[in-house]
Simulated scan of single mutants.
Amino acid sequence: MKTFLNILYWFLIVIALIQFIPVDRTNKPVDEKVNFVTVQNTPKNVTEILKKACYDCHSNETVYPNYAYVAPISWSIKNHINEGREHLNFSEWKNFNPDLKKNMLENSAKSVKDYSMPMTGYIAQHPEANLTKAERVLLVNYFEELLKSGKY
């Protein structure tokens, strides 16, 4: 029993100490002139879907939940956000070259269609991001229309 209490004591000390390791949760300022919804003149219904299901990880408009301030959970969340922005950042849309935009739209359509986005773990904590079949169809159609038009 004494060994267990000793392990528990040190575990709690470590958990308390790692809270002091900083995680940068600063969002870059959003320039509307390069933001996807502005550049593409995205319809309001599509914009609402993007904002509720995609923008936390794929834009510079992340809203961090309360649990994102507790280590080591905060490290995992920040890592997911960094990876999401690396693959697609709607806030910097106009800064990308046409080939990259095309690739991002194709991957977005595929990911929404095959239910790999939004991620299951994200949906578990953000039920509003759980897209209906109709919302998924709307998003996929929007992305595919942009691809067909070549105006991205």
Rank of each mutant, 00 (worst) to 15 (best):
Q19I: 02
P72D: 04
I73V: 15
S108M: 15
S59D: 01
I73D: 09
W75N: 11
V34W: 00
T42E: 01
L12H: 07
N27H: 01
T47Y: 11
Y64E: 09
Q40E: 14
N35F: 14
V34D: 02
I49Y: 08
I81S: 04
E61M: 15
E92R: 08
L8P: 07
P43K: 01
H80Y: 10
I49D: 04
Y69I: 00
Y69Q: 11
M104N: 08
P98S: 10
Q40R: 05
K44Q: 13
I15H: 00
N79F: 14
A68G: 15
A16E: 02
N35T: 00
I18Y: 06
K110N: 13
V34L: 03
C57D: 03
R25M: 08
V63L: 13
I21S: 09
R85H: 02
E92I: 00
N79E: 14
H58I: 08
H58L: 02
K102R: 12
I18W: 03
K102D: 13
P72T: 07
N45P: 07
V23K: 06
T26H: 11
E48Y: 00
N27A: 07
Q19T: 04
L8W: 03
E32V: 06
K113H: 12
K51S: 11
P72M: 09
T38S: 13
F96L: 09
Y9K: 15
Y67I: 13
H80M: 09
N45D: 14
D24F: 01
T62R: 04
N89S: 04
N60V: 00
D31F: 01
N60H: 10
H58Q: 10
K28C: 00
L50E: 02
L105F: 10
F96R: 07
F11A: 12
K101G: 11
Y115D: 15
K113D: 12
K94P: 09
R25F: 00
D31Q: 05
R85G: 08
C57G: 06
W75P: 02
K102I: 02
E86Q: 14
T42H: 00
E83H: 11
P98M: 05
D31R: 04
K94R: 11
V70N: 06
K94H: 03
K110V: 10
L8Q: 06
S76G: 15
A68R: 02
K113S: 15
N27D: 09
I18M: 11
L100Q: 14
I73T: 13
F90D: 03
S116K: 08
A109F: 05
D99L: 12
G84W: 02
P65V: 06
R85S: 06
Y67W: 06
N89M: 03
Y67A: 12
I73S: 10
P29F: 01
I77M: 12
I21F: 12
Y115C: 05
T62G: 03
L100N: 10
N35E: 15
L100V: 12
T42Q: 03
K78E: 14
L50V: 08
I49A: 05
K52A: 06
